[in-house]
């Protein structure tokens, strides 16, 4: 198993597997209701400035950098989110 890092530390184009959400009850419930559960594979669409843009469960979700810091994940095996395969401008994850 690879290193556990916060979402902030993954580059765009990475596919990651959520390990843990270190947030208070309200925020945690919100993320869970969007499908961001431990074990879920998510694709980092954008993580350069401003909120982090994620793709999972067939939808695009933006989370603030503070929120992203609370989501811990590992690099996932190569299961790229099928709905948003990186195009040429994204480094392969």
């Amino acid at each position: 198993m690879s290193e556990v890092k916060s979402l902030l530390e993954f580059d765009r184009g990475a596919t990651v597997r959520v390990v843990r959400i270190n947030a208070g009850r309200g925020l945690k419930q919100r993320l869970l209701s969007l499908g961001l559960v431990p074990g879920a594979d998510i694709y980092v669409l954008d993580n350069r400035h401003g909120p982090v843009k994620l793709c999972f469960n067939n939808s695009r979700i933006a989370v603030g950098r503070g929120v992203a810091a609370k989501i811990l994940a590992t690099a996932a095996p190569d299961t790229v989110c099928p709905e948003c395969e990186p195009d040429e401008s994204c480094p392969e994850g």
């Binding site: 947030a23 925020l27 919100r30 969007l34 695009r60 979700i61 933006a62 989370v63 929120v67």
Partner: peptide
């Protein structure tokens, strides 16, 4: 408030 938002198509 935490920023968690769907970006709809």
């Amino acid at each position: 408030a935490h920023f968690v938002m769907e970006l709809p198509p």
